[in-house]
């Protein structure tokens, strides 16, 4: 069941979810949040969109499809670990640099990997499940 109210609100809420998720991802290392939570949040935006419209429309709105997104996320997570190896330390040893007073490091990259993976996973699951529901309508 979709209604106009749902559709219109979803248009505005989806970007809000995504932006907020990015904020939470960024702050995650210091404040509540992190890759998993922000990933779920971003995915929820799309899930709401799927509920309001349908799966196809929602997936069209995405730049990268869920399954590659999963792979990219995992790849980022893996890469963040391998950077440590490249630096001659054990796998997943954190490497940090400070740019313009912002501390960046491989654990943050890892978190980004988690973020993407979670979005990919959630949307893969949700899209195939909601597809069936769409078929009923």
């Amino acid at each position: 069941m979709t209604t106009q109210i749902l559709r219109i609100s979803s248009k505005y809420l989806k970007p809000a979810f995504v932006v907020l998720s990015l904020v939470i991802l960024y702050r995650g290392h210091n404040e509540p949040g992190g890759g998993f939570i922000s990933g779920l949040l971003a995915a929820s935006g799309y899930v709401f969109y799927m509920l309001a419209w349908n799966v196809e429309t929602a997936l069209k709105k995405m730049w990268i499809q869920p399954v590659p997104l999963m792979a990219i996320g995992l790849l980022l997570a893996l890469a963040s670990g391998i950077i440590g190896v490249a630096a001659g330390e054990p796998f997943m040893s954190g490497q940090w640099i400070t740019v313009l007073n912002i501390t960046l490091g491989t654990p943050l990259l890892f978190d980004v990997g988690v973020y993407f993976t979670v979005i990919g996973v959630m949307l893969t699951i949700m899209s195939v499940i909601l597809e069936k529901v769409d078929q009923w309508d």
Binding site: I5, L6, L13
Partner: peptide
């Protein structure tokens, strides 16, 4: 924003 949506539904 959300409370009306859910109550509407």
């Amino acid at each position: 924003i959300t409370a009306p949506i859910s109550s509407h539904m």
